[in-house]
Amino acid sequence: MSLTLSDVKRIANLAQLDMDEAHAEIALNELNGIFALAEQMQAVDTSGVAPLSQPLSAIMAQPLRLRDDVVTEENRREDYQAPAPKAQDGLYLVPKVIE
């Protein structure tokens, strides 16, 4: 299976990456090269095999660890907001959000 230019544009849109025609063309070739590699996976019989999303769960149970419900954070807005590209009155500013 190989991608089309419209696939590439749809993905770029989902990923919020600005991409002009020329770049989309290049991306298309690169992605098809990479997905050519992926094709050999389809031949592998994985029926009855469970996906392994946490490596160590291959050998041990890994239940999610839970935190006690206590407030541990204090207000450090000045620190945390220092790297903001645009902020005012403690708010992060972005181009108008229309709902």
């Binding site: 992926a38 996976m41 389809q42 592998v44 994985t46 095999v49 469970a50 996906p51 392994l52 999303s53 490596p55 291959a58 050998i59």
Partner: peptide, 19 residues
């Protein structure tokens, strides 16, 4: 399913080979 899930399944097979 064809890519991500299949890859995670083969990942288990790879871990099993080592074991």
């Amino acid at each position: 399913d064809a890519y991500y899930v299949q890859a995670q399944k083969i990942r288990r097979l790879i871990a099993d080979d080592f074991q």
